[in-house]
Design a protein around this nucleic acid. Sequence first.
DNA 1: ACCCAACGATTGACTGAGCAACTATAAACT
DNA 2: AGTTTATAGTTGCTCAGTCAATCGTTGGGT
Lengths: 169, 169
Amino acid sequence: MDQSVFDDPRITAVGLLVEAYTGLSARFAAQFEEHGLSPVEFEVLTRLARSPGNQLRMTDLAAQTSLSTSGVTRVVDRMERDDLLCRRACPSDRRSSYAAVTATGLARLDETLPGHLRIIEEWFTGQLEPAALAALLDGLRRVRDAVYPGATAGSTDPAPIDEADEAGC
Amino acid sequence: MDQSVFDDPRITAVGLLVEAYTGLSARFAAQFEEHGLSPVEFEVLTRLARSPGNQLRMTDLAAQTSLSTSGVTRVVDRMERDDLLCRRACPSDRRSSYAAVTATGLARLDETLPGHLRIIEEWFTGQLEPAALAALLDGLRRVRDAVYPGATAGSTDPAPIDEADEAGC
DNA sequence: ACCCAACGATTGACTGAGCAACTATAAACT
DNA sequence: AGTTTATAGTTGCTCAGTCAATCGTTGGGT
């Protein structure tokens, strides 16, 4: 094996991306854990919280996360057991169900987010001057656009929500 | 939940990093699979192949990968079964064993690497003009340096290798 | 109206990974 | 030398996640 292959600038580039990513992920995970959340759970909470009515159909949730539909079923099981979210019947399609954030889930997210933002600032965005950061993000965006197929996978058929009942489950 | 939180530029920045990373990872994984390798197996092979004597002690291998020591034990089990590498006794410390790439393993790596480099080029480095790429890598490096603790975890006590016996197992 | 292909969610079987406990060896201390 | 402590690797247990099969529901074709 020719050692020089591993000094290839392309390998180095990937190494940087991987290490930056995994390093940041570890920081995030540690902070999530302080609030009793796993990375997946945090992702699920944010995806739901930013969706109309704080809810999403199981399939759409799967499409927006790193999980398969069966994976979503199981995460939702756990989170429903912990009262972070709940399932709701979909009025227009009896096959579907919504996963909806509970008040507890929203509170948990609220208490987790500030620290999360602080960590991003501290270890990522704050590490670079504005111009350098912009350049980094620009590069990432172009790679992302090339490589990430589901950048625009929105939920369809947002069911009408009774605001008063929201998170009431 | 205030929707505007999710438009925070810090959240967006992380999103870009995550999506670029996972998108690229998926491309890599698909190509590895064409050659019968999982991402971890590819990582193990490269780490070993770039080490003196094409081998590394189990612990050092764990330190250089995303795996725990028990995780390494199990990957090495599988890869030894598939004849991609083999265990060797460490002459100077009877507790240790080396994982050493076999000829089969080296061949597999050789057949996988060109395509891997091509994919990096196609979806990552080739997406940007040289200056933009340099800026991206520079940013990544600074984040990596801040956030990735084990950037310099080398193996200790590289055992003397009989070159003739190498990969003979 | 009926059939049937497609779809949403769940379940069972399996896999890969981590943690903690354990064994064997090595090193350090007295 | 003998005891104690630390280290290298493996193993049992558990858990999160995927794939494939399944169940109920929907909607289109005739």
